[in-house]
Measured scan of single mutants.
Amino acid sequence: MVQRGSKVRILRPESYWFQDVGTVASVDQSGIKYPVIVRFEKVNYSGINTNNFAEDELVEVEA
Rank of each mutant, 00 (worst) to 15 (best):
M1K: 14
M1C: 13
M1T: 14
M1H: 14
M1L: 12
M1W: 15
V2P: 10
V2F: 15
V2C: 14
V2R: 04
V2D: 05
Q3D: 05
Q3R: 14
Q3V: 12
Q3W: 00
Q3I: 10
Q3K: 14
R4W: 03
R4P: 15
R4S: 11
R4H: 08
R4N: 08
R4F: 05
R4T: 13
R4C: 13
G5F: 00
G5C: 09
G5I: 01
S6N: 07
S6A: 13
S6E: 04
S6D: 09
S6L: 05
S6V: 09
S6K: 08
K7Q: 08
K7P: 03
K7F: 07
K7N: 05
K7R: 13
K7T: 09
V8D: 07
V8A: 01
V8F: 00
V8K: 04
V8Y: 00
V8M: 00
V8R: 00
R9L: 09
R9C: 12
R9G: 05
R9I: 10
R9T: 05
R9P: 03
R9H: 02
R9E: 04
I10H: 03
I10P: 03
I10F: 01
I10C: 09
I10G: 02
L11T: 07
L11F: 02
L11Y: 02
L11W: 04
L11H: 03
R12N: 11
R12S: 08
R12F: 07
P13K: 13
P13I: 11
P13A: 12
P13N: 06
P13R: 12
P13S: 09
P13V: 14
P13T: 11
E14R: 05
E14T: 14
E14V: 03
E14W: 11
E14S: 14
E14D: 14
E14H: 09
S15Q: 03
S15G: 02
S15D: 07
S15P: 01
S15I: 04
S15K: 02
S15W: 05
Y16E: 10
Y16M: 03
Y16F: 15
Y16K: 04
Y16H: 07
Y16Q: 05
Y16I: 05
Y16T: 03
Y16L: 03
W17F: 03
W17D: 03
W17M: 00
W17P: 03
W17N: 02
W17L: 01
W17H: 01
F18T: 02
F18A: 04
F18R: 00
F18G: 02
F18I: 03
F18L: 01
Q19E: 10
Q19F: 08
Q19T: 06
Q19C: 14
Q19N: 14
D20Q: 13
D20M: 13
D20F: 09
D20T: 09
D20A: 09
D20R: 05
V21P: 00
V21L: 10
V21K: 00
V21F: 07
V21H: 04
V21T: 08
V21I: 13
G22Y: 06
G22V: 06
T23N: 04
T23I: 13
T23A: 03
T23Y: 08
T23K: 03
T23H: 04
V24N: 01
V24F: 00
V24H: 01
V24E: 01
V24T: 02
A25Y: 09
A25S: 10
A25H: 11
A25E: 15
A25F: 09
S26K: 11
S26W: 14
S26H: 14
S26T: 08
S26N: 10
S26E: 14
S26R: 11
S26P: 02
V27N: 04
V27A: 03
V27C: 08
V27R: 04
D28Y: 01
D28E: 09
D28H: 06
Q29P: 12
Q29I: 11
Q29S: 12
Q29A: 11
Q29E: 11
Q29W: 10
Q29N: 12
Q29H: 13
Q29V: 11
S30P: 05
S30N: 08
S30Y: 06
S30A: 08
S30V: 04
S30F: 06
S30E: 05
S30T: 13
G31V: 08
G31N: 15
G31A: 11
G31M: 10
G31Y: 09
G31R: 08
G31H: 10
G31E: 11
I32K: 09
I32S: 13
I32F: 04
I32G: 14
I32E: 10
I32H: 10
K33D: 11
K33V: 08
K33A: 12
K33R: 13
K33C: 10
K33P: 14
K33Q: 12
K33H: 07
K33I: 08
Y34I: 01
Y34S: 05
Y34M: 07
Y34D: 05
Y34K: 08
Y34V: 03
Y34G: 02
Y34C: 11
P35I: 10
P35H: 08
P35L: 10
P35Y: 09
V36M: 03
V36Y: 14
V36H: 01
V36E: 00
I37R: 14
I37L: 15
I37H: 11
I37A: 12
I37F: 11
I37S: 13
I37C: 15
V38S: 00
V38N: 00
V38L: 00
V38T: 00
V38R: 00
V38I: 03
V38H: 00
V38E: 01
V38Q: 00
V38Y: 00
R39V: 14
R39A: 10
R39H: 11
R39Q: 13
R39G: 04
F40W: 00
F40Q: 02
F40G: 03
E41W: 05
E41V: 08
E41I: 08
E41M: 05
E41R: 05
E41L: 07
E41G: 06
E41A: 09
K42V: 07
K42P: 01
K42D: 10
K42C: 13
K42T: 14
K42L: 06
K42N: 11
K42E: 10
K42H: 11
V43E: 13
V43C: 14
V43D: 11
V43Y: 15
V43H: 13
N44R: 01
N44F: 06
N44V: 05
N44T: 06
N44A: 05
N44S: 08
Y45A: 15
Y45W: 13
Y45K: 15
Y45V: 14
Y45G: 15
Y45Q: 15
S46M: 15
S46H: 15
S46I: 11
S46E: 15
S46K: 13
G47D: 06
G47C: 10
G47F: 02
G47M: 00
G47S: 03
G47T: 02
G47I: 01
I48M: 14
I48Y: 10
I48V: 14
I48E: 15
I48N: 11
I48Q: 15
I48P: 05
I48C: 15
I48H: 13
I48W: 06
I48R: 07
I48K: 11
N49R: 05
N49M: 07
N49Q: 07
N49I: 06
N49K: 04
T50V: 13
T50L: 09
T50F: 14
T50S: 10
T50A: 08
N51A: 15
N51Y: 10
N51L: 07
N51M: 15
N51I: 07
N51T: 11
N51V: 11
N51P: 01
N51S: 15
N52Y: 10
N52Q: 10
N52H: 10
N52A: 15
N52M: 09
F53G: 02
F53C: 06
F53D: 01
F53T: 01
F53I: 01
F53E: 02
F53Q: 01
F53Y: 06
F53P: 01
F53N: 03
F53R: 00
F53V: 00
A54P: 01
A54Q: 07
A54I: 03
A54V: 03
A54N: 09
A54K: 08
E55R: 12
E55W: 15
E55V: 14
E55I: 14
E55K: 09
D56R: 07
D56L: 06
D56N: 12
D56Q: 07
D56M: 06
D56Y: 14
E57S: 03
E57I: 01
E57H: 01
E57W: 05
E57A: 02
E57T: 03
L58W: 02
L58M: 06
L58F: 05
L58K: 00
L58S: 01
L58D: 02
L58A: 01
L58T: 02
L58Q: 00
V59Y: 08
V59C: 13
V59K: 09
V59D: 09
V59F: 10
V59P: 02
E60N: 10
E60T: 13
E60Q: 11
E60W: 10
E60I: 15
E60V: 15
E60D: 06
V61E: 06
V61L: 10
V61K: 02
V61H: 03
V61F: 06
V61D: 05
V61W: 06
V61S: 02
E62L: 10
E62S: 12
E62W: 10
E62M: 11
A63E: 12
A63R: 12
A63D: 13
